[in-house]
Design a protein around this nucleic acid. Structure first.
Lengths: 210, 210
DNA sequence: TTATTTATTGAATATTCATTCAATATTAAA
DNA sequence: TTTAATATTGAATGAATATTCAATAAATAA
């Protein structure tokens, strides 16, 4: 199959580009460097990605796919449980074991493109919406939570996760990192318990909007 | 004063660089382009910023300064009030009128540098910590909240603001944007009311850690 | 005023950039 | 096997890149 070669080469090129971006930063990656890294002439790189924009779009697809994979094992494990334990859910959502698999620098370099490229913006948005839907479905497996507004709860949880992801990236000291991480975990616990509370008492005691 | 010329020129160069980054993206800005944009030879640009790294560091200083200015009017207004009204506080923290003054694309392009440059990481962190301290001081002006853990509360509020900032940047439709914005505002209200509640009832009903 | 420092210019550097092209090798279809 | 399509190579392109340098102009200090 001629198509197999094509697909594999494209994958190889994007992977190489990703590795280079990780090491030297996306802004320092060139077609020539990618070729050199993979032992192929730059003209072959351009045979599969006729211009640099397509190369970047390919990288973003790759990044977003990887980003999604981060949550895959978390989701799989939780899906097999008949009931969702809030603690283990939050633990898993915040477990950043993926750090080894995923480079935040490349991710945010690509993220910056959303502000000047509408199609990239849409791609990013779709992924983030998708993750929220997945979380909502997980929450709906809980016999109590299913009676509440799990869509809203998922939004609230993710905004904390993403804000934490952003802020924690600035931490150097492990101690401080862990301390803040704990704090944000508690913040998510509170969201879940508040929703459970709201459901069980029929009406919320806070201004929990909906 | 010889120093005035130097300072003004440096400022002019960074401003020009910022304008270009806004229009074409940071990755497409070069020393030659900056010079052309400002009507000066590239050698003059390099006279003040002997290499490109210094130019980028200058830009980041500028960005972070601007970022801080966003909160300046908000803080000023609130500081003059003897008491902090939670609603107007949250309204102001989420008011993104600054969008005209500040370019998110450049901000995140620069943010991506924290993952490969420790000194940039530190700069970013200092700013974010500073903003939290400022918010804590504002919260401490409230006669009820001052008896609570305002430092913790400030952290929790900012993680929502920053997560919202990240997520809302992906929204295109005004309606959806407003809807989500409302949601995140409520989330912050709830944090404030929960803390007030916790203080007034002596002990929290949730697992509000501290 | 003279001497010295700084600001500014414009030309020049080697290097890297994305991209093109023609030639050849390999694979799949007829 | 012949034909057609694709994969791969290597050389070449001009434009853009960061940076250097020597010369001049302007401002400051003596």
């Amino acid at each position: 199959m001629k198509n197999t070669i094509r697909k594999e080469r494209k994958k190889e090129i994007i992977s190489g580009m990703y590795e280079l971006s990780r090491r030297e930063g996306l802004e320092n990656v060139s077609i020539a460097k990618i070729g050199k890294h993979l032992g192929m002439p730059p003209s072959l790189v351009m045979h599969y990605f006729p211009n640099k924009r397509l190369l970047i779009l390919g990288l973003i697809d790759h990044i977003l796919h990887q980003y999604q994979l981060i949550y895959k094992p978390i989701i799989n494990k939780l899906e097999n449980n008949p009931r969702v334990d809030p603690e283990s859910l939050v633990d898993r959502l915040f477990s950043r074991e993926w750090n080894l698999l995923f480079d935040d620098g490349v991710f945010f370099s690509c993220y910056a493109f959303i502000f000047r490229d509408p199609s990239i913006k849409k791609e990013y948005k779709n992924l983030h919406v998708k993750l929220r839907v997945t979380l909502k479905n997980l929450l709906d497996k809980d016999e109590v939570l299913v009676n509440g507004n799990t869509g809203l709860l998922a939004e609230k949880i993710f905004v904390v996760i993403e804000g934490a992801y952003y802020y924690l990236s600035m931490m150097d000291e492990a101690k401080e990192y862990d301390q803040k991480l704990e704090l944000f975990k508690n913040q998510v616990y509170d969201l879940i318990y508040a929703e459970i509370n709201r459901i069980q008492s029929g009406k919320g005691m806070y201004s929990s909007g909906g």
